[in-house]
């Protein structure tokens, strides 16, 4: 029972209810940090940890937290963890901290975290809330990494700084600039939605067939 529950959450957060492509949450940072794969991975880990621990804390406090101040308390809990991430980045990876700029601080207003706290952690046990939050962050990381791979490969001809495409490749400057982020994310959303639309159409047909067969 418990293990299937965990598997179900993983499936939902990574694909069927993926925060970025299905719920269109946390788009701001999804677009801003995806020009390089390394930035994206650091940001993804940061968001996953903050989401996980915020969910854990909110869930642990869920019985003693008055509903009236819930939102404010959640924001403060999230801000606390974001400050931790920020301090760690500044201390150990100053270059990365500079490259991400204000977007580390903007994890606070990332709607994914608040969304998971409200929708899941509010009524579940701490451990599974942590798992749910962390996996949501992973779903976010997955989509961002996909965007970043396309953008870095076409914009610089590299992945994680290693040259992949060689000298013959003419870098597409547009991929480094802002508009391409919109185009690449839109394409990914388009592909994902088309796949689900096809699948649901197929399953509708089988259900219809089943109904007809039983009717006969």
């Amino acid at each position: 029972m418990a293990s299937s529950n965990y598997r179900e959450i993983a499936k939902q957060t990574l694909w069927t209810d993926n925060p970025v492509i299905r719920q269109i949450l946390g788009i701001c940072s999804a677009l801003a940090v995806t020009n390089l794969v390394s930035n994206t991975l650091v940001m993804g880990i940061g968001v996953s940890l903050v989401t996980g621990f915020s969910s854990l804390t909110v869930s642990a406090l869920r019985k003693i937290m008055p509903t009236r101040v819930r939102m404010m308390a959640q924001t403060l809990i999230i801000a606390f963890y974001v400050i931790l991430v920020d301090i760690v980045l500044r201390a150990f990876y100053p270059d990365m901290s500079k490259a991400l700029g204000p977007y580390v601080g903007l994890i606070i207003t990332n709607c994914i975290i608040m969304g998971r706290c409200e929708a899941f952690a509010q009524m579940n046990k701490p451990l599974i809330s942590f798992y749910d939050g962390f996996m949501s962050g992973m779903g976010y990381t997955l989509v961002l990494t996909a965007i970043a791979i396309v953008r870095e490969l076409m914009g610089f001809g590299t992945i994680l700084g290693f040259p992949i495409l060689g000298d013959w490749w003419t870098p597409w400057t547009i991929m480094v600039m802002a508009p391409s982020a919109f185009f690449v994310l839109a394409s990914i959303i388009w592909i994902a939605h088309s796949i689900t639309a096809k699948k649901s159409a197929a399953s509708d047909q089988t259900i219809n067939k089943g109904v007809q067969a039983s009717g006969n």
Binding site: A178, P179, F182, F183, L185, A186, I189, W190, H193, A197
Partner: peptide, 23 residues
């Protein structure tokens, strides 16, 4: 519009074109 592009996907592409124009 194509089914998969309705809603957010389309808004995102329009925004991308707007961003190009603002450049």
């Amino acid at each position: 519009l194509p089914k998969g592009l309705q809603g957010a996907g389309f808004a995102m592409i329009v925004t991308g074109i707007m961003a190009l124009a603002f450049i």
